[in-house]
Design a protein around this nucleic acid. Structure first.
Lengths: 154, 154
DNA sequence: TTTTATTTTATAATTATTATAAATTAGTAA
DNA sequence: TTACTAATTTATAATAATTATAAAATAAAA
């Protein structure tokens, strides 16, 4: 029920325990990841990291992200409406709110009533978890829609 | 509540009404889309179309899919766990069941109890719809998991 | 039919991601 | 501290998915 955000320490510990070395690059990527709630893409993480460490390379960003995801549990990926693969360090079971216009993505930690898939619908699948995505317009995009009133635009 | 699958006729009509021409290529892509419940990717649609019309080009498949999606309502896209962009002609509001191992995707038309996002969680968003995704293992992948018992595999 | 704008095709360009191999470095132990 | 070694990083090339371009083909209307 409480917020269980990944801390930099937890992620660093995860890497250590799997016998990996700690590097300034990995530390920077982890810091960025944990403090960014916008669910950035790999490219966005690379841009922000490169701004601070000029010779950071894309390969390092991709490698580190893959390792963190593969090590399990602490970082996961999401992908909505062709907005690219996005990284998330929110460990709480949580849901999403996605702006169909600007692709902003917000975490929803609200605890909804239990949802169970009736066995006859489950097609023999073993269900592990579920996730609700709300689609809508963020405040900014609602404004923009009002301004260009005519609904018959391309 | 009833099943509202897109028919080829509805999609053809949609193109006609927007002033587009009907071509054998478009007709073939539409037929494939409507009769395929596996939520194929653009590449899969291209492969199947090319098997019947040898000089079908990828550009035509991409163009046609984009048009159908842009014309609204009748075709939509989904994307889960880096399995690529997948096309869907199921018009019913519906949910999904996704195999985390083989990426099979099944539609769930079950009507769940109403889910509403409390305003204080909605961050000013205007909610348009929501979609539940169940993650699990399909029957085939459950079997495969049992066989290779040891859980410490790469 | 003829006409014309749309569509298709083939191809090139772009973008995102992955692979490779040489240079660098973290962690360990002398 | 210094030296050692395997892991990591970097730069670059390769691959895959998608988009752009422009010439050739064609559907729909006259």
């Amino acid at each position: 029920m409480g917020k269980t955000m990944s801390t930099p320490e937890a992620l660093i510990e995860l890497l250590r325990q799997s016998g990996r070395k700690m590097t300034p690059q990995r530390r920077a990527i982890i810091e960025l990841l944990v403090h960014d709630t916008t669910h950035p893409t790999a490219e966005e993480i690379y841009q922000r990291a490169a701004a601070m460490m000029p010779d950071m390379s894309r390969a390092t960003v991709y490698n580190t992200l893959h390792e963190l995801v593969a090590l399990g549990g602490l970082v996961e990926t999401h992908e909505f409406s062709e907005s690219g693969i996005r990284y998330d360090t929110n460990l709480d079971p949580h849901h999403h709110l996605f702006c169909i216009h600007c692709h902003a993505l917000v975490d929803i930690s609200h605890d909804f009533a239990e949802i169970t898939l009736p066995p006859r619908e489950a097609a023999g699948y073993q269900i592990i978890r579920h996730q609700i995505t709300f689609y809508g317009l963020c405040p900014t995009c609602q404004e923009r829609n009002k301004e260009q009133a005519s609904p018959s635009n391309t």
